[in-house]
Amino acid sequence: MSADRAAGLVLAALAAGIAAIALAELPMGSWARPGAGAAPLGLGLILGGFGLALAWQGGGAWEATDRAEAGRALAILAAAGFAALAFEALGYRLTMAAMLAFLLLAVERKPVLPALAWSALLSLGSFHAFSVWLRVPLPRGPFGF
């Protein structure tokens, strides 16, 4: 399927979902006082129209993707997901050090010592700069670390 057709159908499906939720759950108000659901419903209908028009029109090519790129992209997304999951439980420094070490060692297969040094330097250094000096509140994990 061409890129535009696929994207158009996905957008139209999303739009249908938006419109359905808006109609089912949100108050529409009146013409003079549109309620909370009026804008989402309107936007859903417009988005659906655009999506169907794109699908009908077709055309558009996918950008080439090889297996190595896709695999790496998945690994990086997984690392970002891990960061989101562990951030407040493990604290900033431990989470970041683990994420960096994973990317450098498991994904990029870099030598162990420089990879660990770079991970430690980045996680501790950025914590020091932003949490200690600039007082951005960052989470601490077990034992206040």
């Binding site: 990086i76 690392a79 970002a80 960061a83 989101a84 951030f87 900033y92 970041m96 994420m99 960096l100 990317l103 450098l104 990029e108 870099k110 770079w118 991970s119 980045l122 996680s123 950025s126 932003f130 960052l138």
Partner: peptide
């Protein structure tokens, strides 16, 4: 080496 650092930077 740079992109893991950028990712950490994004999270921060």
């Amino acid at each position: 080496y740079l992109y893991p650092a950028i990712l950490a930077f994004c999270v921060l």
